[in-house]
Simulated assay, not measured.
Amino acid sequence: MAVDPSDVHDRLPCANSVDALLRHLVSGALTEHESACPYCREQAEELRPLVTAVRQSDEQRVTAPTGLVSDVMRVVRAERRPGRTIVLDGPGPGGTEIRESAVAALLRASVDTVPGVVVGRCRIEQTARGVVIRAAVRVALDRPIPEATAVARSTMRALVEERLGLPVVRVDLDVVDVRDNGDGNR
């Protein structure tokens, strides 16, 4: 699967993309899920100043709402991703680092091949013993959770060990939702 730049960003615990939620908020066409989901509603409230500014720009000259800069900076400071990197081992002088967000995107994409499992938030921690992966997943109702998560865990472990060359200490998957989506795959 090709990784679209918009897929690099974290997803909400419900696995909904923040980018998709923002597009729907601006257009005024929230999905049924986004209207009911507590995670989407909470994120929508944080995005409210940005949505207001975008809507105003369509109507008139843009004037930032009071507090927009501080609201945006609060979100930026709270985001842990940009500064966190994983150090890859390699021969020779110098070093290679990869951002945690890039590893998380790779892990989410790798699990796309596992039927009935969708990865949401994904955190990677590099310890002296190796990598610890923590991820929130949704599992389709028609999939046995132990088997589905075992395959997802194995797929994630293989990606980190084989493609990044790092030992995996542990892969913790938190099943945050079980869904019946009609086709049973997503």
Rank of each mutant, 00 (worst) to 15 (best):
Ile124Asp: 03
Leu68Pro: 09
Ala104Asn: 02
Asp177Pro: 06
Gly165Pro: 10
Arg143Val: 05
Arg99Lys: 13
Ala78Arg: 06
Pro13Arg: 10
Ala44Phe: 05
Asp10Ser: 13
Val62Glu: 01
Pro115Val: 02
Ile124His: 02
Glu45Asn: 11
Thr85Ser: 10
Glu32Leu: 03
Asn185Met: 09
Tyr39Val: 04
Val132Ser: 03
Ala135Asn: 02
Gly116Phe: 04
Arg55Leu: 10
Asp174Gln: 14
Arg11Glu: 06
Asp180Trp: 05
Leu25Phe: 05
Val119Glu: 00
Gly90Phe: 04
Tyr39Ala: 10
Met156Trp: 02
Gly67Met: 04
Leu21Asn: 06
Gly92Asn: 05
Gln60Asp: 14
Arg108Ile: 01
Asp58Arg: 13
Arg138Ala: 11
Val151Ile: 11
Glu42His: 07
Ala20Arg: 12
Val3Ala: 06
Val176Arg: 15
Val111Ile: 13
Arg84Ser: 02
Arg163Gln: 15
Gly116Gln: 01
Gly94Trp: 01
Ala140Leu: 02
Ala135Cys: 13
Asn181Met: 09
Leu22Gln: 10
Arg143Cys: 06
Gly182Pro: 06
Thr66Gly: 04
Ala20Val: 12
Val137Asp: 08
Leu30Ala: 02
Ser57Leu: 11
Gly130Trp: 03
Thr127Glu: 15
Leu21Glu: 08
Val178Lys: 05
Pro91Met: 08
Arg77Pro: 03
Ala109Val: 09
Leu21His: 13
Ala78Ser: 15
Asp177Lys: 01
Val117Arg: 12
Cys37Ile: 00
Asp71Glu: 02
Glu46Trp: 04
Thr155Gln: 13
Pro82Trp: 00
Cys14Asn: 05
Ala105Cys: 12
Asp112Cys: 12
Val178His: 08
Val87His: 10
Gly28His: 10
Glu162Ser: 13
Asp4Ile: 01
Leu50Trp: 04
Val75Thr: 13
Gly67Asn: 07
Leu68Asn: 05
Pro13Leu: 08
Val18Cys: 05
Asp112Thr: 14
Asp58Lys: 07
Glu97Asp: 07
Pro167Trp: 06
Val176Ile: 06
Val175Phe: 03
Asp183Ile: 08
Val62Pro: 07
Glu42Val: 00
Ala64Val: 03
Leu88Trp: 09
Leu12Met: 12
Ser110Asp: 12
His33Arg: 14
Pro91Val: 13
Ser70Thr: 14
